[in-house]
Amino acid sequence: MVRWLNLLKANLRKEYIELKRYMPNTIAMVITFFCIFLGMFAGIQLVGDPGSQDVNTQYVIVNYIFWFLAMMVMNSIGWEITNEAMRGTLEQLCMTPMGLWKVMITRLISTTAIYFFIIVGLLYVSMAVTGQWLNIDVIAILPILLLTLISMFGAGFMIAGISIILKQVQAFLQILQFILAGLTFVPLTVAPALAFLPFVKGVDLVRNIMIQGVTLSEITMGDFFILGFNAVFYFVIGLGFFLVCERIAMRKGLLAHY
């Protein structure tokens, strides 16, 4: 357990140092994201139905915040693997007696923890700019968010696995950001079956809390069952898939020389 903690601390520190040291890059990324949000907000204001403008804006705030989170958790792990393989450090990570998957999970936790603060900041700035103040019920949001993050980590592992064995994964990662956008923006009432995808149910429940003011006690056991099932299912499948990909990479010699 102590070794786990030391591994987590090392990766958390690395992510923080790089983020701080290359602050202009981080700021540019956040500004880009915020500009995308402003574009969506302007769209609602200019061409949206005036009767539902407020609700639509609230939907966009929650959806785009979750899109940013999904991008940071799921997409960035793919880019990170690709970069590490190109730089030559992936082989060093594979040589840790802790196991590569443990390094990856601590990376996922570290990235999420660090970007969480940026996301909260973005949320409040978005609310202030639009004048739409959402219901931030931490007690209700936190358990849903945690279960949703576990399923996101599982999906992140799948993307990491694909990134290890496929050298032309960059094109897929570009497309993935739009797939993630689609999944965060689609309401479950339109496609209920999507509830069993990694984070769609979680986003839907958080939307209900933040926009409609639903409390924790109003969320059904069935909803929590789906969230819990998704968390366990995607994490186990994702980790298993990652380990298989790692094995394939070791058999075919794909851990370096992109």
Binding site: V2, W4, N6, A10, R13, K14, G88, Q92, M98
Partner: peptide
């Protein structure tokens, strides 16, 4: 192992940070 020399390092970290990071990856504080 040192497999690809200088490519085995994180170029955005300092000398000390690299040493500390790789030790951390082996579970050491």
């Amino acid at each position: 192992a040192v497999l690809e020399g200088n490519r085995n390092l994180y170029w955005r970290l300092t000398v000390r940070e690299n040493l500390e990071y790789f030790a951390g990856n082996r579970g050491r504080s």
